[in-house]
């Protein structure tokens, strides 16, 4: 039986996640706990119910439909009545405005491939394709590889965007199935990764090394986060570390951004970095110059 994937979004018409015009498939679930994560729907493997107060017309149908009988609709616009939600999803079904959305649906390989192949014409015309992202797509490696194999038969370019924490055995298949790996490198100091994300930083760096030992096309993406990796010392350390790898990949720099602040509200949480100022163009440019001086090929992000 073909594996099922748990997907939280299929985003069409993207241009920043690989060559050409792309469809980005966002998969649910990630082991890393990056405090600045902007794909909050991607962290948990479980489906979630998002609530967008801006779309809500306060009709109260969701509360009425809930099998847990939460009582009256609180007109204060908060979502407190959902405490103890068991994800039955009735509220989503009855919501007329789309304010309530179930985030995370299960798709078979065939279903996903059918959905993305709608754009086969524009993939062909622009040299684009499909990018698997997340979350951490390789936590659902069977699904991703099966989709990639199917897409390969249709000559669709496949990119996989990963944060690098997954069993080492995936390396060979990833290198074979993906036309491009977009590797989000958080830091080159394993201890720093462990400290901030609470995961085994060494395993991530070893996975990157193993990928660099294959011939898969690989682009590194470094998200500059003030106070974590954007200082001169950290950047120089990253540059030096990368220079010692078996091959030096292209590096793309992007600023951390706060778009997730609005998103956090959809899930009733608060975005911890809401008050951090993202690096500006000048800082980004300075960082790029620094990496270039160290001989790294920096591409625009």
């Amino acid at each position: 039986m073909s594996p099922l994937g748990r997907v939280f979004d299929v985003s069409k018409g993207c241009v920043h996640d690989g060559p050409g015009l792309r469809t980005v498939v966002f998969l649910k679930g990630c082991a890393l706990g990056c405090p600045w994560c902007h794909n909050l729907e991607g962290t948990s493997h479980r489906p979630q119910i998002a609530y967008d107060a801006a779309l809500c017309i306060r009709c109260g149908r969701c509360v009425e439909a809930c099998p847990r009988n939460p009582g009256a609709w609180a007109l204060d616009g908060t979502d407190a009545w959902r405490d103890g939600c068991d994800l039955a999803g009735r509220c989503v079904e009855v919501c007329p405005s789309g304010a309530r959305r179930k985030v995370g649906r299960e798709l078979s390989v065939e279903e996903l491939v059918r959905e993305v192949l709608v754009d086969a014409d524009f993939f062909r015309g622009t040299g684009g394709g499909v990018t698997f992202s997340g979350g951490e797509p390789l936590l659902q490696a069977d699904f991703v590889f099966a989709c990639a194999a199917e897409l390969a038969t249709r000559n669709v370019h496949v990119a996989v965007q990963t944060a690098g924490l997954w069993p080492r055995r995936h390396v060979a298949e990833l290198a074979e199935r993906a036309d491009l790996v977009l590797f989000d490198l958080k830091h080159c100091d394993a201890a720093a990764i462990t400290r901030v994300m609470g995961v085994d930083g060494r395993a991530i760096l070893e996975n990157l090394d193993a990928l660099l030992a294959t011939d898969v096309e690989l682009e590194l993406c470094v998200t500059l986060v003030p106070g974590f990796n954007s200082g001169r010392d950290e950047l120089e350390a990253i540059a030096r570390w990368l220079r010692q790898r078996p091959r030096v990949p292209a590096v793309k720099l992007q600023p951390f951004h706060r778009l997730a602040s609005g998103k956090a509200a959809l899930y009733g949480t608060r975005y911890p970095h809401a008050d951090t100022t993202p690096p500006g163009d000048a800082e980004l440019e300075a960082a790029a110059r620094l990496l270039r001086e160290h001989g790294l090929p920096v591409v625009a992000g």
Binding site: H16, P19, G20, L21, F122, G125, T126, G127, G128, A300
Partner: peptide, 15 residues
């Protein structure tokens, strides 16, 4: 915003 985006846009137009 960059050369790649421009190329992609031109390719979309042609498609």
């Amino acid at each position: 915003k960059d050369g790649r985006g421009l190329d992609t846009f031109a390719a979309m137009l042609k498609t």
